[in-house]
Computed example of a mutant assay.
Amino acid sequence: MIVGILGGGQLAKMMAQEAKKMGFKVAILDPQEEPPAKGVSDYHILGSFKDEKAIRKLAEISDVLTYDIEHINVQALKELEKEGVQIYPSPRVLEIIQDKLVQMQVMKEAGIPVPRFIKADKDELVDKALEFGFPLVQKTRREGYDGKGVAVIRDKSELAKLIPADSMLQEFVNIEKEIAVMVARDQEGNTVAYPVVEMTFNEANILDMLIAPARIEEEIAEEAKRIAIKAVKALDGVGIFGVEMFLTKDGEVYLNEIAPRPHNSGHYTIEACLTSQFEQHIRAITGLPLGSSELLIPAVMFNLLGEGNGKPKVIGMKEALKFPGVYVHIYGKSVVKPLRKMGHVTVVNRNLEKALEIAHKVKKVIKVVGDA
C-alpha cells in the first residue's frame, strides 16, 4: 500500500516514519525541493497544494490520501473522492475546518460547548465589534495558523488592531488553562482519546510548553475527553484530531479549535504513549485497528523555534542530551526563520515536576539558529 500525503513538513515526516515501519510506501506532494519528509518517502511530487494536476498525480500513485496541512485545494479532493479515491479525513471535514466560523457553527449545532461568537465580514468589523462587546478575540475565517489571523481586542482603543478580513468574533474567555486532547477515530467509528494535556503559549501565540498529563481534576479531564470525542464524531472524522479547549476559572470546558491531522500538542506521544499520534493516524486511514493511547510516563514537550535567518545550526545538543529522559527531534528544514518550528524536545520522567524542571533547564541550552 502507498500512503499519499499532501504536505512534506515535519508532520508528514513523522507520519512517513511510522508508515514505513509498517511496511507501507509513502508519496508526498510539496512545493519545496527538499522538504523534511522527502528523506523518508518513496516518491516526491513537486507542486503546490492548490494545484489540481499535482494532487491528481499524487492520487494516481497512492492507495489512500491524507494531509499534514489544512490550506489545500479541497475542491480537487472532493472531486477525487467522488471518483472513488480514499481520502481521510474526508474533504468534507477539511472544508468545515478550513473556515473557523463554519467550524464553530457545526460544533454548536452538535451540542459542543463553545464560546459565544458572531460572523463579521471585512467591511463591518468595527460595527460588529462594537455590537459584540469587549474584550473579544478576532479570528480570520481562513488561512490562520500558529497565532496568525488572531487579534485580541480589549477595548475600543484597540479597534485599529482588527485584521482586515472576513472573520469570526469570539468571546474572550477567562482562562484557567489551555488544554488539548488527541482523538483517533477509525473507519468503523471506534474512538480512542489520549490523556488531557495542558499548554502554555508564547507572545506570538505559538505553543511554548506542553505538560502531560494536565494538572487538573479527574472529573474535568473526563469531561474534556468526552467533549473531544463528541466533536470528532460530529465531524464523522477518520484519523487523528487535535482538539484544543479552554478550561475556565469556573471549571467549565469550551472547545477552541480542531486540527484534522497530527498536531503539535500530540508530539509527546512518540516517547510517552503506547501508540504515537502518528502511528495512530496511519492505522486509522489504512483500515488497521487503533492502538492503545495509554500514557506510559509523564512528559513535557517544548518547540524549538528558529532564531534569526539562514542555514540551520543546532546549538547545545550535547548539553541537552546530558539530562536523563531527553529526546530531541530536529525536523530537517533547510532554512531558519524567526519563530519557525525547527524541531521539538520531549522530556520524560516518572515524576512530572522533575520532567518540568529538566525541560526548563534544557530549554535554556538548546537552540536552532540561522547561520546566515
Rank of each mutant, 00 (worst) to 15 (best):
I220T: 15
I220M: 01
E223Q: 12
A224R: 05
A224N: 06
R226W: 06
I229S: 02
I229M: 06
I229L: 00
A231S: 13
V232N: 03
V232H: 05
V232K: 04
V232T: 02
V238T: 11
M245N: 07
F246R: 12
L247A: 05
L247W: 09
T248V: 02
K249M: 12
K249N: 14
D250C: 00
D250G: 15
E257Q: 08
E257K: 10
P260I: 01
H263N: 02
Y268S: 02
Y268R: 01
T269C: 06
T269M: 08
E271S: 08
E271T: 11
A272K: 07
T275P: 11
S276K: 02
F278L: 09
F278R: 01
I282C: 12
I282L: 07
R283V: 08
P289F: 03
L290W: 06
S293T: 14
L296I: 14
L296M: 15
I297H: 10
P298Y: 04
N303V: 07
N303L: 11
L304E: 05
L305W: 06
G306R: 10
G306A: 05
E307I: 13
G308Y: 11
P312V: 13
K313Y: 11
V314M: 10
K318Y: 14
E319D: 15
L321K: 12
L321N: 11
F323E: 15
G325K: 13
V326Q: 10
